[in-house]
Amino acid sequence: MRILGIETSCDDTGISVYDSIEGILFNKVFSQFNSYNSYGGIVPELASRKHLEVLSKLIQNSFEEFNLDKNSINAIAYTAGPGLTGSLLIGASLAVALAFSLNIPTISVNHMEGHLLTPMLEDKKPKFPFIGLLVSGGHTQLINARGIGEYELLGESLDDAAGEVFDKVAKLLGLKYPGGSNLSKLAESGVRKNFCFPKPMINQKNLNFSFSGLKTFVSNVIKKEKFDFQTRANIAKEFEHVIVEILVEKSKRALEKLNYTTLVVSGGVSINKVLRKKLNNMMNIRKGKVFYSRPELCSDNGVMIAYVGMLRFRKFKSFDLRILVHPRWSITELKSI
Rank of each mutant, 00 (worst) to 15 (best):
G180N: 01
L133A: 09
G155K: 03
S93K: 06
I107A: 06
V169I: 11
L175V: 08
T140Y: 06
P119C: 05
A92H: 02
G180Y: 01
A145C: 12
G179E: 05
K171V: 07
I90E: 02
V135Q: 01
E156C: 14
A145S: 08
K125P: 03
G155W: 05
F130N: 00
F100L: 15
L98N: 09
F130V: 01
G147T: 01
G147R: 11
F166A: 03
L88T: 07
N110P: 07
N144G: 13
F166I: 04
H111K: 05
I104F: 07
L158T: 13
T106D: 11
L175A: 05
M120F: 15
V165G: 05
G114H: 11
A162P: 02
D123A: 15
L186F: 12
N182K: 14
N144C: 13
M120V: 14
G174W: 06
N103I: 12
M120H: 15
A97M: 09
T140G: 07
T106S: 00
K124L: 15
S108L: 12
A99T: 01
D159P: 00
M120N: 11
G163Q: 08
G132D: 02
L133P: 08
G91F: 13
P119V: 00
L172F: 06
I90M: 09
T106E: 10
L98I: 14
H111Q: 08
A95L: 01
F128K: 03
H139S: 07
S108R: 08
S157R: 02
Y151C: 13
V135P: 02
E122R: 02
L94I: 11
V165R: 03
H111L: 12
A97W: 11
E122F: 15
M120K: 13
I104N: 06
V165P: 03
V165W: 00
G180Q: 04
P178W: 11
E113P: 11
G174S: 02
E164T: 08
G149Q: 00
L154Q: 08
E164D: 09
S87G: 03
V109K: 03
G114C: 12
A97V: 10
G163N: 02
P105W: 06
F128A: 04
D159Q: 00
L183V: 09
I90Y: 13
L133C: 06
G138S: 07
V135W: 02
A99M: 03
G163R: 02
S108P: 07
A92M: 07
P119I: 10
N110T: 12
L98D: 01
L102F: 09
G149L: 12
F166M: 10
M120W: 15
G179C: 05
V96G: 00
V109H: 07
E122N: 13
A145V: 08
A162W: 08
G163L: 10
E156R: 14
K124H: 14
A161V: 04
L94S: 08
E150T: 13
K124M: 15
P129V: 03
K127E: 15
T118H: 05
E150I: 15
I90R: 00
G149H: 09
G179F: 01
S101P: 08
K124P: 10
A99R: 02
Y151F: 13
Y151G: 04
I107N: 09
I90T: 00
G174D: 05
I143T: 03
G114S: 12
L116M: 13
L175H: 01
L116E: 05
S181W: 14
V135H: 04
P119R: 03
M112W: 10
L186A: 06
A99P: 07
